[in-house]
Design a protein around this nucleic acid. Structure first.
Lengths: 223, 223, 223, 223
DNA sequence: CATGAATGAGTGTTCATTCAT
DNA sequence: TATGAATGAACACTCATTCAT
C-alpha cells in the first residue's frame, strides 16, 4: 500500500525558491501558524530566519506576498492525487479509500505548521487571494473523492446516499482538530513519555485507523 | 427531545456585564472571529460597538482582558451538561448520545463567532489564560462523554474499545470545519437560494444527522 | 492707499485649527519650504513643532493631508480681492492697479515660506489636490485682474492689446524669483548690514515700485 | 538675428560623460524636475535610464554627486555670453538687449527640465555645492548684463537709474513662472489644439516679445 | 567593467494605553 | 462615570549605498 502512496506523491515542487527564501518561508510558517498573520511581525520572521528585515520585502515584496509564497510553496501538499488510484485495478474500492485517507493524514500531519495557517485563513470571511486558492483546492479535492466513492457505489461496494461533503468535513475536521489539540490528546492519553517524533507517528496511526473505520462503516453499513 | 435539550441549558450566565460591556464583547467577538485577535484593533471594536476607544481599557483593563471577558461571557456554551442526562431513565443509551450531539451542534452552531475564536486560540501553542481555560473545559467535557459511553458499554448497548478522544475530535472537528467552510458547503450543495437563517437551520439538521449516524455506527457495529 | 489695502484684507480665517495644529502647520511650512515635501520627514516636523510624531497623523491623518491643511490654512492669502477695488470711485484706474500690486507684494512677501511651497508644487506636473487648488486660484485671480484692466481699457486709460496672462506671469514670477533669491539680492545690493526685518521692508518697497513702474509703462505707453 | 544667437552658443561641453552617464543624467533630470531631489529615488532613475541601480553609485559616487553632475553637464546653458555681443558694432544697444533676451529665453525654454531643478534648488537656503554654483553663475550673468546696460546708458540710449537686479529678477522670474505654469498658460489661451512643439515655439515667441517690450519701455521711457 | 545580493538607517503610519478632566 | 487628547513603541516598508564577484 505504501508503494501506491509513494506513487501518488509525484513531487511537483517546481517552486523556484532559493535557500534563503525557503528559510524565510519556513520561519514565517512556524510563527504565523501559532501567532497568526497579523500577530507575527516581519521582524520576528527575519529574526527567526536569521536574515535582515529588509530581505523579506526584497525577496517577496511584502508580508502579504510572503504569505502567498508560503501557499505557493506548500500548495502541492493540499492537492489530493487520485487519478492513478482510481484506475488502479489491484485495489478494491474500500482499499482505495483507505489509501486516500492514509495519503491525506500523512500529508497534513507532516506539515502541521502550514495546515494551521490554512485553518486560520479559512476563518477569514473576506475574499482574499489565499481564500480563493483554498476554495479552489477544496473543490478539486471534493471532485476526486466524489469520483472514488461513486465508482464504489456503481460497483455495489458502497451504499447509496452518501453525503460526500459531510464525509470530507469529518475527515478534514478530525485531522484539523487533532492538529489543534496535539497537547490535549497527548495528555489525556498519557503519552508524555514519547518523543515528539514517536508521538506524531502514534497520532498518524491512530488517526488513519479511526478515519478508515469511520469511512468503512459509513460506506458499507446501512444507516 | 427538545425538552431535555432545554433542561440542559440551565443558563448560568452569572456574568456581571452591563449593557455597554456586552455591546463591546459582542462587537469584539464579531471582529476577532474573522480577523483574529492581533488583526483586530481596539479602535475597530470601539467603532463597531459605538463606544469610545478609551472605554475598552476603562471597562476591561486591556485588549487581552477583553478577550478573557469574551470567554468568561461565553464559557457556559462550551460546557456540555450531561449530569441530568445520565440519570435520565426514559432514554436509551444511544438516545442519550443523540441528545448530546444535538445539544453540542445547537450550541456551537448558534454562536459561531465565539467558536471561531476558540478554533483560533487552540492553534496558539503558548500557555495563556485562554488556552488553559479551553483545556480545562475540554477535559471536563471528555469526562462527561466518557461516562455516557462507558455506561452504554457496561449495559452492553455499545461495543468495547471506543477511543472517546478520537470520537470527540471527530465531533468537534466536523462541526468546527463546517463553521469554517460555511460558504464552501453552501456552494457545493447549491444552497445559495436559502436565507442565512434557513441555511443555518439546514446545516444544523444535516450535521446532527450525520454525527448521530457516525456515532451510532461506531458505537454499535463491530469494526 | 494703505487704507484700501487694509480694507481688502477682510480676514476670512474661518479656519478651525487649534493651537497645536497651527504649531504643526507652521513648522511644516518652514521645513517644507526649503527642503521640499519629500525631503521633510514627519519626525523633523514634529521635532520643529515640539510635538509627538504620532500627533501629525492624529491631527491631520497623513503627511499628505497636512500639506493640504497648510493650503487650507493659507489659501486666503492667495486670493486677490478686487471686488471692492473695482467699484471704488475715488481711485483712478492706474491707482487701482497699484493697490493691487501693493496688496499682492505685501501678501506674498509676508508669507514667503508658504509661497515657496506653492512654487515647488507648481513644478509637479502630476494632477494633485494641491495642483488643482493652485490652478483654480490662479484662474480666479486672472479673471479679477482682467476685469480691472479691461475697465481701464474701456475708459481709455490703458492701451489695447495687453496680454494679461503674461503680465501676471511677470508680477508673480518677479516676486517669486525675489523670494527665491533673497540672499543674492541682499548681497549684490550690499544690504548685509540691514536686519532681516529692515531688509524685507526694503525689498517690498523696491519690488512694489518696480512692478508699478512696469505695469504703468506697459499699460500706458505705446509699444 | 539667429546668426548672432548661434555665434553665442560656442558649445563648451567639455564634459567627459560617456553614453551611459548621459542616459542617467537625462533620466535623473526628467524625474527630479517634477518630483524633486528627495522625491526621486535612485531606483526610479535607474529604471528610467534603463541601467542597474548600482550603476549610479558606481559612476557618480552618490545621488548627491549625480545632481552635481547634472549641473556640471548643463552649466553652460546658464551662462549668458555677452562678450562678443558687447563688442559687436553692427547692433544698436537695444538690439543687443534683444539678442540677449532671445538667447536667454531660447536657452531656458529649451531645457526646461534642468531649469525646474534650478528653481527648486534656489529655494533651499542651506549652503550646498549646487547653491554656490548657482549663485556664482547669477553673479557673473549680472555683471554681463550690467555692462551691456551701462554701455547703453553711457551712450545715452538708455535712461539712468535702472535697477538691473530687479530687471534680471523680472526676466528670470517671468521665464521661470512660464515654465512652471505651462499648463495654465496653455489653458487660459485656449492653445490645447497645438502640439507640444508648436506650443513651445509659440510660448518662446510670446515671451521674447513680451520681455523685449518690457525692457525697451523700462530702458527708454522716463518713469 | 558591471551588477545581483544584501543591509542599516530611516520612512510614514498605527497601535494599545494613559491621563487630566 | 466617561472621554478627548496625547504618546512611546512598534509596525511594514523603502532608501541609498556597499560589496563580492
Amino acid at each position: 500500500m505504501s508503494r501506491e502512496t509513494e506513487s501518488m506523491e509525484t513531487i511537483d515542487t517546481t517552486t523556484e525558491f532559493n535557500e534563503k527564501q525557503v528559510a524565510i518561508i519556513t520561519a514565517a510558517e512556524k510563527l504565523i501558524s501559532t501567532d497568526g498573520f497579523a500577530g507575527t511581525s516581519v521582524r520576528d520572521i527575519a529574526h527567526e530566519a536569521g536574515v535582515n528585515v529588509a530581505m523579506i520585502s526584497y525577496y517577496f515584496g511584502s508580508k502579504e506576498k510572503l504569505l502567498e509564497a508560503i501557499f505557493e510553496y506548500r500548495t502541492s501538499i493540499m492537492r489530493i492525487k487520485v487519478e492513478n488510484l482510481i484506475q488502479n485495478e489491484h485495489l478494491t474500492h474500500i482499499e482505495k479509500v483507505n489509501v486516500l485517507i492514509d495519503d491525506y493524514v500523512e500529508k497534513f500531519m507532516h506539515q502541521q505548521d502550514f495546515h494551521k495557517i490554512v485553518i486560520r485563513e479559512q476563518l477569514i470571511e473576506r475574499d482574499t487571494v489565499i481564500a480563493s486558492l483554498i476554495l479552489e483546492l477544496k473543490k478539486r479535492n471534493l471532485v476526486s473523492i466524489k469520483k472514488l466513492i461513486s465508482d464504489g457505489q456503481k460497483a455495489g461496494a458502497f451504499k447509496k446516499n452518501i453525503d460526500v461533503g459531510l464525509m470530507m468535513s469529518t475527515m478534514v475536521g478530525t485531522v484539523s482538530h487533532m492538529i489543534s489539540s496535539n497537547k490535549f490528546y497527548r495528555e489525556i492519553n498519557h503519552l508524555e513519555h514519547l518523543t515528539e517524533e514517536e508521538f506524531q507517528k502514534h497520532m498518524k496511526k491512530k488517526l488513519s485507523f479511526h478515519l478508515k473505520n469511520l469511512f468503512k462503516l459509513v460506506l458499507t453499513y446501512e444507516s
